[in-house]
């Protein structure tokens, strides 16, 4: 029962390519949405549950991607080992930055994480010897899963969606555990959380590290899927998009974050036909959602559906009476 939503999500993801075989939109856009789901679900643990903002999350996404790209192309590491190294690097970096950064609140935390994202992006552009600079790194080998080389759009769809489901499952588990409740308590009242014995500095650090790990994991998959990485994929715009996904879907809801990620990915695809007006419509839609569904798409629409349902039940003449 606790995982009912998870099973529904898994079934949808598995059925889509079967219902629409050889459909470019499903497998390619779907894979891209899947990566965004991992990123948004991870960021939601920090933003939605622990109540801490990060405007530099693309940095961890990029760190995972560059770790995989550099270690596999320049040092010939096996892809899984490179992925693990990327996770460790992102986790350590997040851990080291968490204590000083998470002392800050509100606008100051936003500024600090923004600065962090900008610094990492500058390093990606400037450290040409390692990263290839603005031109990026090409020729990232395919992901090798114990001898199975992932290739083709459909296989990538499968791998990324499996990873996205794993991210959703981990997030659902965490939220409904002492660790997750401690995070939510920090958001609810830091004062009271401390008095319940919650080490709030530690709880925030954990949230920051976990969300960084999710992002680095997505980054690593992204590097192999695209076979190419460049700094453009990890700049400030991407960080802002990630925040938008979480807020759009609905803060403090794992499925909300997942829905936000999928909705924003689809929206960007759909708006391509409007060419010059794309950003205009994009911005207007986001503003409309925030004004009319302040709790986000997922929570807002489920509540609207429930209200509609009960209205229909009421309007029907009662048979029992």
């Amino acid at each position: 029962m606790r995982l009912a939503g998870f099973y529904a999500f898994a079934a949808t993801v598995a059925l889509l390519p079967a219902l629409f075989p050889d459909n470019y939109f499903v497998v390619v856009v779907g894979a891209s949405a899947g990566l965004n789901v991992i990123l948004a679900v991870g960021l939601n643990l920090l933003m939605g549950y622990a109540g801490q903002i990060s405007l530099g999350h693309a940095a961890f996404f990029g760190l995972g991607a560059y770790a995989s790209a550099i270690l596999t192309t320049r040092f010939g590491w096996p892809s899984l080992l490179a992925l693990a190294a990327g996770l460790i690097a992102a986790g350590l970096l997040a851990w080291a930055f968490a204590r000083p950064i998470l002392r800050l609140r509100g606008h100051y935390l936003a500024m600090a994480t923004l600065g962090f994202g900008v610094i990492v992006h500058v390093i990606m552009v400037q450290a040409t010897g390692w990263t290839g600079g603005p031109d990026g790194l090409a020729g990232v080998p395919p992901l090798d899963l114990f001898g199975w080389e992932v290739s083709g759009d459909l296989q990538w769809y499968g791998v990324i969606m499996a990873a996205a489901l794993l991210a959703v499952w981990l997030s659902l588990n965490l939220v409904d555990s002492p660790v997750g409740r401690a995070l939510r308590a920090v958001h609810g009242s830091e004062f009271a959380a401390q008095m319940m014995g919650v080490d709030t500095a530690r709880a925030k650090t954990q949230a920051f590290v976990v969300s960084a790990l999710f992002a680095a994991f997505a980054g690593s998959l992204f590097a192999h899927q695209q076979a190419f990485v460049s700094p453009d994929s990890f700049d400030l715009t991407v960080s802002v998009e990630l925040v938008t996904m979480v807020v759009l879907g609905g803060l403090a809801s794992t499925f909300g974050a997942a829905c936000g990620a999928i909705a924003l990915t689809l929206l960007q695809q759909a708006l391509v036909v409007f060419e010059d007006y794309e950003m205009l419509i994009h911005g207007a839609l986001l503003m409309a959602v925030m004004i009319f569904l302040p709790q986000g798409l997922f929570v807002g629409l489920t509540q609207a559906a429930r209200r509609l349902g009960s209205a229909l039940v009421r309007s029907r003449p009662s048979v029992a009476a």
Binding site: L174, S177, P178, V179, R181, A182, R184, A185, A193, M196, G197, V198, Q206, V210
Partner: peptide
């Protein structure tokens, strides 16, 4: 959350 001190769970 009040039971936090009596809970033991690693991340």
């Amino acid at each position: 959350v009040g039971c936090h001190l009596r809970a033991r769970a690693s991340l």
